[in-house]
Amino acid sequence: MTERDRERRVRELRARAQSIGGGVREADPAAVVGRVFAVQAQDAVAARLGIRARGSAIGPEAIRAAYEDERSIARGWFMRGTLHTVPAADVRWLLRLLAPRLLSTGERRYRELGLDATLRERADATLRRAVADHGPLTRAELTERLVPLGVDPVGQAAFHLIRHAALRGILVHGPERAGEATFVALGDWLPGSGEEPAPETAAAELARRYLRAYGPADVTDFAAWSGLPVGQARTAWRALAAAGATAAYQGLTALAGAGADDGSVTDGPDVRLLPAYDNYLTGYRSRALSVPAAHERAVWPGGGVLRPTVTVDGLAVGTWTRQVKAATAEVHVEPFEPLPAAVRAALAVETAAVRGFLRAE
């Protein structure tokens, strides 16, 4: 097998794992999030587009229902301290595993903002009472409750206190109100705990979920995606190997038995329009297998921006933009190079699906 063939095969397996290649599409939002474990969600519309791209005819209303009616998926700060949508049953153990480090690394920023430990405790109590008595509440409404504590309503102090309460398991994102996020009490919104890994095996479970959604990969990819220290990531990786849960694949690691045919088929190139900040493109330390080096700056122009991307069987072939006005929605694609006819045909179908989704938003 040549190096080019190896790269193509690894990319195809990753694309299938992420439900963006090989004809793989999940039936509903909960199935999508369950498969990929975490959808990057700092941009709420982009998160919905990311779920759409991995599903079969999933519309905005189905995604709203999964968040708000079924409560099968939930949005919060998890891997790397970034907003993600994850299975609701996994929220609590993820917070127990990840939040202590995130809170610790946030100490410097708390000091810069004048948010000492006493103020943070008072803010946690205030926010707990606010959502218990009046929730769901928007960020602005929660900020109003913090002002009597001496918190400046302008700037980042209130945001960091809200995030602090979320990391401590007090708040979680609730229903949207007129397109704006609200916060609710975690215990009220997601009362069921579900089956959770023991604390001593939680990091290994996170590694297992990662490999199922992103494999084949290596431990440095897992550390970069999760935000765990490399030492802890390596320990989790070794624990999976010791349990016989992993296998070597082309110099990388995969879950044992991964890559088997799951029955999905595709008659031609599998084209997807991935949103800005999509987890497929943020899930690895290196972008070499997913974005051609010559076009990397078109996808990552700098300043923390990650543009919406057109992929074919997991390989980026262009970028795209959306424009929504009233009842109309336009999608503009900028390919890196001229596209073959079969790709153009599949792209037309995918573009029409995105337009329909955006019109229904």
Rank of each mutant, 00 (worst) to 15 (best):
residue 5 D to S: 13
residue 10 V to M: 06
residue 11 R to C: 10
residue 28 D to Y: 05
residue 32 V to Y: 00
residue 34 G to W: 02
residue 36 V to A: 02
residue 38 A to G: 15
residue 38 A to W: 14
residue 38 A to I: 14
residue 41 A to P: 11
residue 57 A to W: 00
residue 67 Y to S: 00
residue 68 E to Y: 07
residue 69 D to C: 03
residue 72 S to Y: 07
residue 74 A to V: 15
residue 78 F to V: 11
residue 80 R to A: 13
residue 84 H to G: 03
residue 89 A to G: 09
residue 91 V to S: 06
residue 93 W to F: 09
residue 97 L to N: 09
residue 113 L to V: 03
residue 116 D to F: 07
residue 119 L to W: 08
residue 122 R to D: 01
residue 124 D to S: 05
residue 125 A to Y: 04
residue 127 L to S: 12
residue 130 A to L: 05
residue 136 P to A: 04
residue 142 L to R: 07
residue 143 T to R: 07
residue 146 L to Y: 09
residue 147 V to C: 05
residue 161 L to T: 03
residue 162 I to Y: 00
residue 164 H to L: 00
residue 177 R to H: 08
residue 187 G to N: 08
residue 209 R to G: 04
residue 211 L to T: 00
residue 216 P to L: 07
residue 224 A to R: 07
residue 228 L to F: 06
residue 230 V to H: 11
residue 231 G to Q: 08
residue 240 L to I: 05
residue 240 L to V: 11
residue 241 A to V: 02
residue 247 A to V: 10
residue 252 L to D: 10
residue 255 L to F: 12
residue 257 G to N: 06
residue 257 G to E: 09
residue 259 G to K: 12
residue 261 D to F: 06
residue 265 V to D: 11
residue 266 T to F: 03
residue 276 A to K: 01
residue 278 D to Q: 02
residue 280 Y to C: 00
residue 288 A to R: 12
residue 288 A to D: 11
residue 289 L to I: 08
residue 293 A to Y: 05
residue 301 P to E: 00
residue 307 R to A: 10
residue 314 G to L: 02
residue 315 L to E: 15
residue 322 R to T: 15
residue 336 F to Y: 01
residue 342 A to E: 15
residue 345 A to N: 07
residue 351 T to M: 07
residue 351 T to P: 08
residue 351 T to I: 05
residue 358 L to T: 08
